[in-house]
Design a protein around this nucleic acid. Structure first.
Lengths: 343, 343
DNA sequence: CATTAGCACTCACCTCGCGCGAGTGCTAAC
DNA sequence: GTTAGCACTCGCGCGAGGTGAGTGCTAATG
């Protein structure tokens, strides 16, 4: 879509004013605030054209104009300026990643909080995919008679464990042996490429310990570490209460309850293929979140995509600011993870 | 406070009707619905008396009556009938605990969901206290050059781990040795009674591995497993949106944001000493949650208190139903944990 | 003396109508 | 092509009036 310079300026003014005020924008306002050097009447003509193009719309006759989804899209693609984060903003974010190595989980958790605090919107963080993880180490530890703990470490920093029942008379050496064998067979494999052959071989070699092996394989193969799915973290959910467009209980409930469901958030964050992407309104295909936009970025370790961070806000979102923050945070996260996991 | 039979019936009618409808209750309603065999005028006289006693109040002249905090308290202490859970309700809850052993964390997580689904209010679950936990086992596993994983198991089923840096040239045997020594010194101790002496002895014996020891002791002693505090789980937060008394954004925000803070929830659940307790309104001393009531119960393993479960709802809560559910769920949880952790 | 019928009174809440003002589209003049 | 002017639209806020639920008081009643 080609627009002449003035139409672009008018559209930009409408989008930015609406983002700032949440009120439909009138021709007079634009003429006054954005000094295009023309009268409101001219602006009105331009606005009529923009409306014909589907870039803006009127909530009702005799109201100002509001950007449509494609209006936002055009703004994001063509009009939006790159916004530099101020040095102090950068410092704050950078500082948050200074914290010492710890659990991957808390790194992800902190990122969610950081993102939501920085943007004042809701932050979504998706951790590493379990099935792409490379098996690194497994240990089995006897806890007491009849119980043992299996612990699994993968290369992307995830640690999973589970308590299992074992025959009460089993001795430490047997457990040790089992874990040595399993380690030997699984080292370096990703979970989703575990072949039937490998499993069969294990079953043969450990035929006396069927039960333990079965439990272990279940831990290894459960796609998401069981029912509690640490993969998704949501931060700052309550920030949506501050948005005037959500001054409506049904809308709030719809959004919040969608965010409760890990599958929804996961689909949201895995939708699309670009490593940085802005999704406006219904573009993601989730009707519950049709009133929201999402700015998301993938983070990497050693050039391999590990997960995604995103910021969810109203369609009337400060795209420029949020985009810079998301980019910056994901870059910081890349660095932190390289230090944490990099070889 | 002594009340004659009829006053008790009137109070009970007011509380129960208000719980059911969320509307101030008038004298006519009581006479009609609760068939006390007297006219509205008589009820009005009784109500005036109850108001003098501070058990009920009027939102404004010419409205019906609403229970006051002490009215609820009287109801809960003296008037409320024990409610039996139906067999099918019991079966559902019981079934939810049938699930196989897994991580303690997911047991707690599921309990929160179960409680909130069953009551349609918000569920709070407090997991085991870290500092009362008895050290059971520690292992150190080399991950790759320069990194290792420390893992800590305590008797109450908690498993904590942390990635640490180690000298790149350290060998497996050294790690093994360190963990043997630490295990030897710490086995059977609770975290909060770790004496200076023990620590000094460890420092002497492991003087070559100062750094690793320091990291380990930090993991052991960090009161709550670092910044991410798994101790508190909240379920069904959105249920408060269904309560008519919270059809107000500021109130919703106040409650939800209080529930976001682990410290608040923790204080709420650790307040008071009884193993089963109903807290009405401001009795817990947290002004943010002054409009809420809490029904909570402690759960045990081997007779030792491990944590607390609770249901948070409006003061206009179905105390009888919630009380039975909370009691039943905590009993089920006791059983499940005894199977899980019991010696 | 407790109970009840009757009655005047209060007050939240709903609805309706009205005026205001922001904003538009159109037309005619520049 | 731009702009001034103007009639028109329509959401919104406000105040008036009516409604109804509920009360407190008083006097009559068994």
């Amino acid at each position: 879509m080609r627009l002449d310079e003035r139409k672009r300026l008018v559209l930009q003014a409408i989008v930015e004013d609406y983002i700032a005020t949440a009120e439909p924008v009138g021709s007079r306002t634009i003429a006054r605030k954005y000094r295009l050097g023309v009268s409101p009447a001219t602006i009105r003509n331009e606005m009529a054209d923009l409306e014909d193009l589907g870039l803006i719309e009127q909530p009702h006759t005799s109201a100002g104009r509001v950007p449509s989804d494609s209006g936002y899209r055009f703004y994001v693609d063509w009009l939006m300026a790159d916004r530099q984060l101020s040095q102090s903003e950068q410092d704050i974010i950078h500082g948050a990643f200074e914290a010492r190595l710890g659990k991957l989980h808390s790194l992800i958790n902190n990122t969610a909080r950081l993102l939501s605090d920085a943007t004042r919107y809701t932050a979504l963080v998706l951790g590493p995919r379990r099935d792409k993880a490379v098996f690194q180490h497994l240990s089995i530890v006897a806890l007491r008679d009849g119980q043992a703990l299996i612990m699994l470490v993968t290369d992307n920093g995830m640690v999973e464990n589970r308590v299992i029942n074992v025959p009460p008379d089993i001795d430490m050496d047997a457990l040790e042996k089992i874990s040595v064998v399993i380690n030997h067979y699984l080292r370096g494999q990703t979970v989703d490429q575990l072949g039937r052959g490998t499993i069969r071989a294990l079953e043969t070699e450990l035929s006396q310990y069927k039960h333990i092996l079965a439990e272990t394989m279940e831990l290894v193969q459960t796609p998401k570490g069981g029912d509690e799915d640490d993969r998704v973290v949501v931060g700052g959910q309550l920030n949506i209460l501050d948005q005037p467009e959500f001054r409506d209980f049904d809308k709030v409930r719809a959004v919040l309850s969608a965010l409760q469901k890990e599958t929804v958030v996961e689909r949201l964050l895995t939708h699309g293929e670009n490593s940085f992407q802005i999704t406006i309104g219904i573009e993601h295909g989730l009707p519950e979140l049709a009133e929201c936009s999402l700015v998301k970025a993938t983070y990497f370790v050693d050039g391999r995509p590990l997960g995604t961070i995103g910021v969810l806000g109203p369609k009337r979102m400060q795209y420029d600011r949020v985009a810079s923050i998301v980019k910056f945070v994901s870059a910081q996260l890349n660095d932190a993870l390289d230090k944490f996991l990099g070889d």
